[in-house]
């Protein structure tokens, strides 16, 4: 552990804290509800992408089916609340735990797969679950679950007009995801993950440890993403299988990390900060014509950024900062 590394880590922590404080003060300056909405979505995707990054970036197991956990989190919270009156705070924990367990179970079955086989396996598992929920009448099937919002309540985590509680929750979630990543980077797990990612065969000599580390990554990643899903259910107050388990959601969780810098600490944050406002603004101000112009703009930017910056946007900054591998 060299001095530079330790210094970098301290600096990262300091920068993160500073950004968090600035973000926390943002609502004082930003009163427009639409802009607040963009901020919340940005924070949410930063959190989701950061969590995804733990498994797919650091551990190298690319998943394009993470919407599964997002959806499970959303549905667990919504169903527990609507059917059994369980408060969303407990629902969140339940959803997170369930997702972590399922992630480990799926990992047990799928970690033997390499490369594209694994990616496709994650996609189809999410699709299967989507189809099952789509046809499951008790869970609302295609009609989804409509969570009535009757008034402001911290217990039920629902608010009629104010976006601030959602904002702060998303901010906390993003900070937690970031912090977990930061902490794991320097832990023995982080070491194993880098070993696994770089050279799975050589890491195999470490035996069962490799497998356990992948399971750990999967569990942590899934837990956080599921909490994000629970948040989403409360935020939008309506979920249906397509909107929380769809493939486009899985892609949207990966995209900020890829564009920002996969496997890096700041990549997902940076990627989300650029991508989400871009998506929202192009839709709102170029999208209403039915001509597809917003899609053309959005797609072109993705192509350009991914080609020009294979290491992601973080590579624009010092070669040391942020580049894990």
């Amino acid at each position: 552990m060299d001095k530079n590394f330790a210094a970098r880590r301290r600096r990262d922590l300091f920068v993160a804290a500073a950004l968090a404080v600035i973000a926390a003060l943002a609502p004082l300056f930003v009163k427009d509800v639409y802009v607040q909405n963009i901020l919340i979505l940005t924070l949410m995707y930063a959190a989701l992408s950061q969590s995804w990054n733990i498994l797919s970036g650091y551990c190298g197991q690319i998943s394009l089916g993470h919407a599964l956990y997002f959806g499970l989190g959303a549905y667990t919270t919504a169903l527990l609340f609507m059917k059994f009156g369980v408060l969303p705070w407990f629902g969140m924990l339940a959803g997170g735990t369930l997702s972590a367990l399922i992630a480990m179970g799926l990992g047990y079955l799928c970690f033997r797969l390499r490369g594209h086989y694994f990616v496709i396996a994650t996609i189809v598992i999410a699709e299967i679950t989507l189809l099952l929920f789509h046809n499951w009448d008790w869970a609302g099937a295609a009609l989804g679950i409509d969570i009535p919002v009757r008034g402001d309540s911290w217990l039920k985590f629902q608010f009629t007009r104010s976006k601030l509680p959602y904002f702060y929750f998303a901010l906390v979630l993003a900070c937690v995801a970031w912090f977990v990543t930061w902490w794991l980077e320097d832990s023995k797990w982080g070491f194993w993950w880098r070993a696994v990612k770089d050279n799975p065969e050589a890491a195999e000599s470490l035996g069962v440890v490799v497998f356990n580390s992948k399971m750990g990554a999967a569990a942590v990643s899934a837990f956080l993403v599921a909490v994000g899903g629970s948040f989403y259910a409360q935020f939008v107050s309506y979920i249906d299988p397509e909107s929380v388990m769809g493939f486009q959601f899985s892609l949207l969780m990966a995209l900020p990390a890829v564009l920002g810098g996969i496997g890096t600490l700041w990549g997902p944050v940076l990627g989300a900060a650029i991508l989400i406002p871009l998506t929202e603004l192009t839709r709102s101000f170029i999208g209403g014509s039915g001509r597809g112009v917003d899609l053309i703009v959005y797609g072109t930017l993705i192509v350009l950024i991914s080609l020009a910056l294979p290491r992601g946007l973080v590579s624009l900054f010092s070669s040391r900062k942020g580049a894990a591998r």
Partner: peptide
């Protein structure tokens, strides 16, 4: 130049 979240926020506010 480091693009921080703050810059994005201020930009968005100004646009609004």
């Amino acid at each position: 130049m480091t693009i921080t979240r703050r810059d994005v926020l201020l930009g968005a506010t100004a646009t609004a």
